[in-house]
Design a protein around this nucleic acid. Structure first.
Lengths: 216, 216
DNA sequence: GCGCTATGTTACTGACGAGTAGCATCGGAC
DNA sequence: GTCCGATGCTACTCGTCAGTAACATAGCGC
């Protein structure tokens, strides 16, 4: 029985699935790791954690599964590596936006703009933070909550100072603002270009700063 | 012969897991279905879709797995039955809150209160809508998006009328408000009682209506 | 009382997918 | 040129879990 052939075109003809990198030559360890992270991000973002198969990710990187396991000890660890990268990016961006100015209205604009840019940025990594299908994993929950805490802390000082409320209340308002920015940014991204990014940010800043009563 | 006893200690030792209803007598179809839905909600809410096992749910209801399959053709269908129930509840509550008054500020208060009550209500069913680990399933995504659309539609009219913006912009602002309410309500629930529900709603209504500039 | 069907049970199958064992080979060092 | 370790591959194991087949009985209609 022609056992080697049994795999159909396996030897001569990997049917070039999807955007899989062709199985090029070898790579030094660091470069391979970076490439694997990129491939994994694409697959996790598109499929979610549960539907993403380690085989998919490997194939997407043009590599076989054991190679993946030479770099990451488990599927969860791989996911966490990406998640960490992503939440750190968000936290840094928001902090920078807040620190850039001392005008509180500009700080609000900066924070909201950051959310829109973050959601709109290459690779849709925001899905790992805001749309993860692995929230029940404690390690994931912890990181997502830490990200929100971090953002909220950055905003809360401004609010406590400007709005005359105590610390706990300032935190609640900050969470509200973060929610406003997060959900509207995701919705804006998903709903085509009925409103430009700049206009969207402008409207939301107005809402946050002057309220509905005076939005007109 | 004490035959009924033979099950008692179920072999020498099923350790009487958790809050499982004891395997009582038979039930008419409708009652059993309702009971299964209740049990399933508890398990899905606590574990999420993926970690919830059909065996868990059955045991939780004090019944064996095939009974579950006599009422629901698959795990997904069971989940969707609960999700439908839940989103319909949310949609109805928000709509009622909006229709109850014609004072726009009161409408905002009503909508935000609704989110807090919804999140705070028995069974934590809100998790199915806001924290589902099954968003990638098209049927689930569709229902969750429909729920948001429905809520947004209810709010958007008010905003478009009051704030002098066009329809697309009013929708964006409504999504922002919904996000504000959703995220802050969930955070409020998770973070003990550092702020009372009434005070939390009051603060957020102020933010939404008069803006940060005048929150004080 | 007596069967008949609703309701329920135990114990299995079959698919799937993370993680691994063991073999192949590329290419730099000398 | 040839040795050898780093890099990679094929092909498997093994646990898990949704869904099912085959069998058991409670209790209603008569």
């Amino acid at each position: 029985m022609p056992r080697a052939q049994s795999r159909a075109g396996a030897r001569p003809g990997v049917p070039a699935k999807r955007a899989a990198t062709p199985r090029g030559g070898r790579l030094p360890r660091t470069a391979r790791r970076a490439q694997l992270l990129t491939a994994a991000l694409e697959v996790f973002v598109q499929q979610g954690y549960h539907a993403a198969l380690m085989d998919d990710i490997a194939e997407h990187a043009g590599v076989s599964k054991p190679v993946l396991y030479q770099h990451f000890p488990s599927k969860l660890e791989l996911y966490l590596a990406l998640l960490d990268q992503t939440v750190e990016d968000l936290e840094r961006r928001v902090r920078e936006a807040i620190e850039t100015t001392s005008d509180n209205r500009e700080r609000v604009r900066g924070a909201i703009t950051t959310y829109f840019d973050f959601v709109d940025s290459e690779g849709a990594a925001y899905r790992l933070v805001f749309e993860s299908d692995l929230r029940n994993e404690p390690a994931v929950r912890e990181r997502v909550e830490k990200a929100l805490d971090s953002v909220v802390a950055a905003i809360a000082d401004t609010i406590a100072a400007g709005a005359g409320v105590d610390a706990a209340e300032a935190r609640l308002l900050s969470v509200g603002l973060a929610g406003l920015a997060e959900v509207s940014a995701r919705w804006w991204l998903a709903s085509g270009d009925s409103v430009s990014k700049e206009r969207a940010v402008e409207l939301l800043v107005s809402l946050a700063w002057r309220g509905l009563a005076k939005t007109r």
